[in-house]
Design a protein around this nucleic acid. Structure first.
Lengths: 159, 159
DNA sequence: TCATGACAGTGATGGACAATAACGATCTGC
DNA sequence: GCAGATCGTTATTGTCCATCACTGTCATGA
């Protein structure tokens, strides 16, 4: 008897202290949520960072690149190709800023506004799936805790 | 009159619906926590994935690569160089498994065990910083909520 | 006025991390 | 003993984040 058990790839593995670590739990949850987000947005071909840029543009038309990328915690360097893509797809655009020829103001296009409306519906459904899991109260609690964690954990920036 | 105000790079920017989205809040928190982790581990030169592997090995000596990577949600493909590095640094090792010449069992070395003990102290301090922010009860709540979010959001795997 | 330094945006590049495709060696079941 | 699955590996690709170096523009003050 006794085969030594064919190793069962999904055998129960003791993760030790990992499940009790904030960072580990956060990472797993973030992966799960983003995975759902990506699947939700698959048809539209929009990724998280792109979506967040569109939202910021909607709320603050005319901001310069520096401001948008700073607000979202994206290096301006990396922001460039990200926005290039949005511009290439006709969802947003750079316009010259009257008083400063270095800077460029960022705006949604009409197509961008329309697209964003569709996206927001999808995001609402996406979000609803999580509320279904933890309840509205749970979500409120979660957001509160996360904000307390995030808020100035370290100084965010350029020295 | 009226200068149009020098744009103030950290001017208040309206993030629209983003702060209310689970995924956005999670991402920001995760970045903050990992940033702290990286700074904490900087001296030891250990990254999150490596740490998690070491912990799993400590809790389950002799597991095969497939099992460890599956348990941690890492593709075996990507697991290889990760473990190579741990082996190169003498913290862990692959050993042949008696009944199966394809498979390799993974173990901590003595050095690995010693290192891990130091790491765990650092991680405890790291963790304590967050408990200081949200309290022990807050952390318990947070972990509970995160687990409920994570747990089978989508089917976890291959296929 | 013009030289210097700061600033906005861009390009090129590299590291960490995830995913896919394909392969050699080995095991398993029929 | 052969077909098909499994284990580990290589190679390759794409995304994300970071650093460095550069251009063009501005602002200041000597």
């Amino acid at each position: 008897m006794d085969n030594d058990a064919p190793p069962a790839l999904d055998a129960v593995v003791d993760l030790g202290p990992l499940p009790g670590l904030t960072g580990y739990a956060l990472r797993r949850a973030q992966i799960a949520v983003f995975h759902d987000f990506h699947r939700t947005m698959e048809a539209e071909g929009i990724r998280t960072a792109q979506f967040s840029v569109l939202e910021v543009l909607k709320a603050n038309p005319g901001l310069r690149q520096t401001q948008v990328s700073f607000a979202l915690g994206i290096k301006t360097t990396n922001f460039v190709p990200l926005f290039d893509e949005l511009e290439r797809r006709g969802l947003a655009e750079r316009r010259p800023i009257p008083g400063d020829r270095r800077a460029k103001g960022l705006f949604l296009t009409e197509a961008g506004r329309a697209t964003l409306e569709r996206l927001e519906k999808l995001v609402a459904e996406h979000e609803a799936r999580f509320v279904a899991r933890i309840g509205a109260a749970g979500k409120a609690q979660l957001l509160g805790l996360l904000h307390r964690l995030t808020d100035r954990t370290f100084d965010p920036d350029r020295s």
